[in-house]
Simulated scan of single mutants.
Amino acid sequence: MVDKELELGKRGIIPRLPLPFLLVFPSLLVLGLVILYPLLSSSILSLFHYELTKPNEITFNLLGNYNQMIKDSTFWLAFKNTIIFTVSSVVISLAIGLIVAIALDQLPDRLASLRGVVLVPWIIPGVIVGFLFMLIFDVEVGIANVILYQIGVLKKFLPWLMDEQLAMVAVIVANIWNQVPFYILMFTAGLKAIPIDVKEAAIVEGATRWQEFVYVTLPYLRGIMVITSLLMVIRNFNNFPIIYTMTGGGPVFSTTTLVIYIYRLAFEQFNIGYASAVGIVWCLVLLLLSSIYVKMLYKQI
């Protein structure tokens, strides 16, 4: 039977598929089922008024959900919260990660094990991080209040997770703690790639530590900064477990990001049509960020 199929393939009766395509096809099939099908389904549902509690009242409204989105103040608040959460997390994490990576690069070999310790927060699941910082920022027994009160920064314990302004600060701090090790890892690798003779030449020319950092270290790390930042922007745009575990998007909507808002629309209000429309807009923003990431990556290559 196998010999007959090979013979038919040689005669051109059965098309011969290239080996790379055959190897990649299973992965493409899985991606199609996991990503493409839900994306197409959401695109179609976004054109309908569809509530799970009213399955017999599905109506086609074309761009009605998108028109509603433009007038939806909660959507724009969620979009603003997403930008604040993402930009703050990325900028602060990048700065801390760079400083810690440079400090670790100066450590003697006998203390090299500390580099592994600082990476621990990166491997902790987001849900665990959320529960951990929910306890840290607890109004009564949270260690954040205790420490700040003891050193005189606070005159009374603050309700971090119940205050509309402080809640966003708390979730950003938790997120920064979780993702700083990623920057440390990337920057440490970048620092090791800087040629020693370039540093030595700068020292011979009389450059100070600051001048060496600005004119030697930063130029070599610029590519890593761009790539890692874009990657973390995409990740933070999708960040669900930390925020939902700590605040559930509250109080009110003060920490509701787009991903939290979509979850509330779909699984709390059961408004599948409108949730799909918001999801499509969210997906388009991520697609734009991903395209920028790919272009930057190719430039570095």
Rank of each mutant, 00 (worst) to 15 (best):
Ala193Arg: 08
Trp177Leu: 04
Met246Ser: 02
Asn175Phe: 12
Val233Gly: 07
Val226Ser: 08
Ala202Leu: 03
Arg264Glu: 14
Val259Thr: 10
Asn239Glu: 14
Val216Gly: 03
Val169Arg: 14
Val171His: 10
Ile262Gly: 02
Lys299Arg: 14
Ala275Thr: 04
Leu231Thr: 03
Tyr261Thr: 06
Tyr274Leu: 06
Ile172Gly: 08
Met296His: 05
Val214Ser: 05
Gly190Ser: 08
Ile172His: 13
Val214Lys: 15
Gly250Asp: 01
Glu212Met: 11
Leu297Met: 11
Val281Gly: 01
Met232Cys: 00
Met296Tyr: 13
Val226Gly: 05
Val259Glu: 01
Val226Tyr: 03
Met232Leu: 10
Tyr215Ser: 12
Ile280Tyr: 00
Ile260His: 06
Ser291Ile: 13
Leu286Lys: 09
Leu289Lys: 10
Val180Leu: 07
Ile203Ser: 11
Leu286Gln: 08
Gln179Thr: 13
Leu231Gln: 05
Ile184Tyr: 02
Gly273Arg: 12
Val278Asn: 00
Gly248Ser: 02
Val216Cys: 00
Phe182Ile: 05
Gly190Pro: 04
Leu287His: 08
Lys295Asn: 01
Thr188Gly: 04
Phe253Trp: 14
Glu200Met: 07
Gln179Asp: 08
Val173Cys: 10
Thr228Tyr: 08
Val233Lys: 12
Ile194Ser: 00
Thr188Ser: 13
Thr228Gly: 04
Val169His: 14
Asn271Ser: 05
Tyr183His: 09
Asn238Leu: 14
Thr217Tyr: 12
Thr208Lys: 14
Glu205Tyr: 09
Phe187Ala: 07
Ala202Asn: 03
